[in-house]
Write a protein that binds this DNA or RNA. Structure first.
Lengths: 215, 215, 215, 215
DNA sequence: ACACACGGGACCTCCCGTTTGT
DNA sequence: ACAAACGGGAGGTCCCGTGTGT
């Protein structure tokens, strides 16, 4: 989603602060409960500026999702997945990156895209549509990894990369949702562990199934 | 959650209609976007009646979650899981029931509890707390099944029933979330299929991994 | 105001409780802030009963004022003013009775009639009118005392009993108002003391002017 | 109370109109019966503007009391009390100013502070507290006058300036209350007359006791 | 590029009074 | 005589977005 003419780095500071504030508020309260005034207050910016940069609340919702996806891409880039030679190792590395990212305290738990999808997916397509696309883009990345791995390592049982990617997407979103209500990230390593065990297991590669004493 | 003195069946009709309307609206738009006026209109009831039965919007939110959980328990009861002798078969049956339920067109897709949890879990504990409890109750039922199955059938690899139940909970919630944005239930059989394959696989029982041509 | 066919003593208990609750609530919060539901709750009665005994909220407001005036008459009766032979002594006794009554902790401070008069006097004559009459009835009683005293004891300076009664009425109402905000009755003896000193002074009778160390 | 950075003269016009409207409405109907919509309508301002200037109804209640007190200080300032050399003459002049002010038809009869005190003094301290303070400030001004007068003119009988100021405060508030329900100001000169006679009498100075034919 | 003032409508809540039934 | 259910509307608050000016 860095297709915008104006990438986040070369963005006016006020605009960036507004987006950052929106991301934080959506994670904390969801989209509907977040008000424009709140965003402005947290960003330390007046409403005049807000409506200069964004035509309406929806637009900053889109921008927040874009920023969120870009941040996630940044995490993957920083992980230098492409430097891992074997496609299956690359896939395995993805699970580690995910677990690490979702446990980093500096990154608020939750997912802006998933939150918007849950709240508006069914009733507001102008935001729900883009949220769906963001999720699909995420899934496509995973599909590519799975396909490459399949090409390099014939799986023990045949599977559809699309289906497994959807399975992983659901797992991730559900884990973040439960994490939010429980207000702790305890289940992250557990859920990612089981997911890794399953997916790598499809390739016949043994992965550790999480057991009580570890957690 | 049928512990209330007043079960849904012996409830005043208007109250029942209000709760039903709320369930539908929360599934469609989420909690925050649902207004009291909307609920009344859909239920065909006046606001005077609404506030006779519910002190405030939060209270009907709680009632909607209770009704939702009760409905799910009703589905499990109707499935007569307890009549399945072998605990592992019982567990296997659960996946079938889940898949069937999430695909029944009469039951709107999504989960009231999960929706409330996503929107309010982190910022409104008076609703977030109960939503968390509902999720935990669901998980506990699964934990029981897993424990019984473990007792009857030594698993191929050891696992923690609590962790696996959390994994399943996350999977279910995430699947419903993605289903909502995608506006179709195509991933339900896929995700439940993978989940079944993984969990039964822990017991060494082969389950069919979903493949493309089936979907 | 015992002209009602049904005096308070031979009143149904529920009706009496409703009136008592109303008196207390008006003293505590005023007329407008007092709701019918509140009255019912404090009285331990349902709304069905309320609207059986009173056509609307205004009517119980009138009844509360009547009850309040009746209670005050009861205090005067109990004080047996008429047994004091000398009219001026009778007048002097009135001040003592007032001071005592306004300091009795069991009697909530404030005046139902004055409160209604303040809130509705200018904009709701159906309650304001009767409140005015109640005040006038009080004043007339004082006028009688003053007139009798004047007849028996030629005053040092001539005065109009009506004017002095109004002065006393104003003083009493103002004192109760200030007492209410200050949330203590400290000024009661002070103000009644000055009032007594002035009125008795008109007759040349020395009355103690309140001084600091007493209070 | 002119300590606010923003005195009424340099206030946005809409804000001023809102306060003026509130003052008028509180005098006419009291605080509780006055609605925000009414205030806006009388002021010729929309609700959007109202809530731009005032966070809530309470806040404009405070502002109305401040404005009212400031207006009264303005009257005293205009009367140039401080130019009267003799402290006792100054005190005497205060009675004239009061009588004059309370009889000016342009100034609506009643007292915003007293009205709020009566309605909310006992049950809403966020408004009751400030109303109490306003009354105390008024009393303190009188205490100063009485103390100065005592220093310059040894009184005939000793008295406590604080007690006499409270007496005067009660008298004023009560008079305004009765004036409101009677819907005429006839008792103002009478009550102020008696009050002046009493207070000046404490200094041995003869003041005219109001007699019938004058009124 | 940004700040302030403003408009108007939606939303939750509450409250008075009525209706229906016993 | 009383209780429960209900109707409908008003009130306080909030919130998105617009205008005007600099």
């Amino acid at each position: 989603m860095l297709t915008e003419a104006e990438s986040k780095s070369e963005m006016p500071e006020k605009k960036r602060k507004l987006i950052d504030a929106t991301v934080g508020l959506i994670l904390a309260q969801g989209y509907n409960a977040t008000t424009v005034d709140q965003i402005c207050q947290v960003a330390g910016v007046t409403k005049g500026s807000f409506f200069y940069y964004f035509a309406n609340k929806e637009e900053i919702g889109l921008a927040a999702m874009d920023a969120w996806s870009a941040a996630w891409e940044g995490i993957l880039l920083a992980a230098e997945l492409e430097k891992v030679a074997d496609p299956l190792d690359r896939l395995a590395r993805l699970f580690d990156v995910m677990e690490e990212a979702y446990l980093t305290p500096e990154i608020p738990s939750g997912c802006v895209v998933g939150t918007v999808a849950q709240e508006l997916g069914a009733c507001n397509r102008s935001l729900g549509g883009p949220s769906e696309i963001h999720l699909d883009v995420w899934a496509q990345g995973v599909i590519r990894l799975l396909t490459d791995a399949k090409a390099a390592h014939p799986p023990k049982v045949d599977f559809d990369p699309v289906g497994v990617a959807d399975f992983m997407l659901g797992m991730v979103q559900g884990t973040l949702l439960v994490t939010k209500v429980r207000q702790n990230r305890r289940i992250v390593p557990n859920n990612v562990g089981h997911l890794r065990a399953y997916v790598l297991g499809l390739f016949g590669r043994d992965a550790h199934v999480p057991v009580p004493e570890e957690i």
